[in-house]
Simulated scan of single mutants.
Amino acid sequence: MTETTAATEAAARAGVEVRLENLTRRYGAVTALDGLDLTLHKGEFVALLGPSGCGKTTALRLLAGLEDADGGRVVVDGKDVTRLPTNKRDMGMVFQAYSLFPNMTARQNVAFGLRLRGVDAAKRDAKAAEMLDLVGLSKQVDRFAHQMSGGQQQRVALARALAIQPTVLLLDEPLSALDAKVRAALRDEIRRVQLEVGITTLFVTHDQEEALAIADRVGVMNAGRLEQLAPPADVYHRPATPFVAEFVGLSNKLPAVVSGAQADVLGVRLPLVDPTTADGEAVALVRPEAVTITTTPEGAATTPLDGQVVATAFLGAISRITVDLGDAGPVLVQLPTSEAAAYPIGSAARIGLRPDPVLVTR
């Protein structure tokens, strides 16, 4: 087979549509998935995000065929695969545990799936070398697992999953066992490889930073249901539900009064994420970076936006300052660390609210 033919075949196999239709899964009295509907477009990278027990891993396992659904369908490239066994679904899987064969080199691990498929030795070795080069391990092809770092082992696992040219790539918290710096580098590498190969990918994680950083769309799950599925910026800036607003990022909870499709928050009128919200008293969810801070002018009349700095958290390039507003409670303000020194603990401060759309809850 020529390189051109191989590339054409790979392109034809990549980028299939995946649909999870009304999937239900129960474990005794516990409903892990409650009528889940989820579509992955061709070549799309979707991340499922949520707390432990929300159903995200169950959804991936049903797609992989590792578990049977109690109801609903799994459709891949227009074909109903709900009752097909795992080995008939043509999917590549990478899990939290690297699961490399300790007695095999990186090249042999990557070639293992091809050997099971009857590919001759020369072709599978060439393919393994190609995949290891794709994930940046061309110099480690003959190393055993114990001779590689955790990040390198996970790259081998990714290369092994891609070597069989699967129709769908499934990633189940593949970075959670790695340290922060390696995790950030490898997540970017996974995204680069996914874009280069063009494969439809489902990525399950509890780490919101990972999901927001590399996914085309993020699905936030709660109690077996999909609360929101949207591009990362929309999930963060325009959360569909209070659960999404509180799970993804941090939010200040401030007293508000809704009227005329706006919220009056501490005397500041802010637009609503949902303009159809009913009038009345509510709680506005305001992001810390949407809060500004200045020094309270001497002799100025006190306003609901005035308070006292009671804490500062150093987070590297940014810092979070806590301002106690009295009856309105504490408010987090996020700002560059270079500016935080101007507001020492105990100092008087006045906050401001950026006119971003806010979600309210009752």
Rank of each mutant, 00 (worst) to 15 (best):
A12F: 09
A12P: 07
V18G: 01
N22F: 06
L23S: 10
R26H: 13
G43L: 09
G43F: 05
L48G: 03
K56Q: 07
A69E: 08
D70N: 15
D70H: 14
V75C: 02
V76M: 03
T82L: 11
R83I: 05
R89E: 07
G92Q: 06
V94S: 04
F95N: 08
Q96W: 04
A97G: 09
Y98M: 05
L100Q: 10
T105S: 14
N109Q: 11
R115C: 03
R115L: 13
L134M: 15
V135I: 08
V135Q: 04
G136W: 11
S138V: 11
R143M: 06
Q153T: 09
R155C: 12
V156W: 02
A163E: 10
T167M: 03
P174G: 03
A177I: 01
R183M: 03
R187N: 04
D188Q: 14
L195F: 01
I199N: 01
I199V: 15
V218I: 10
A223W: 07
A223D: 15
R225D: 08
R225T: 12
P232D: 05
D234G: 04
A240R: 02
V244M: 04
E246A: 13
G260M: 04
G260A: 07
A261L: 02
D264A: 10
V265P: 08
L270Y: 08
L272V: 07
A282D: 05
V286C: 12
V286W: 04
P288Q: 08
P304E: 00
G307F: 00
G316S: 09
L325G: 02
G326P: 09
A328N: 02
G329S: 11
V331L: 09
L332Q: 15
P336T: 06
E339D: 15
P344H: 01
P357E: 02
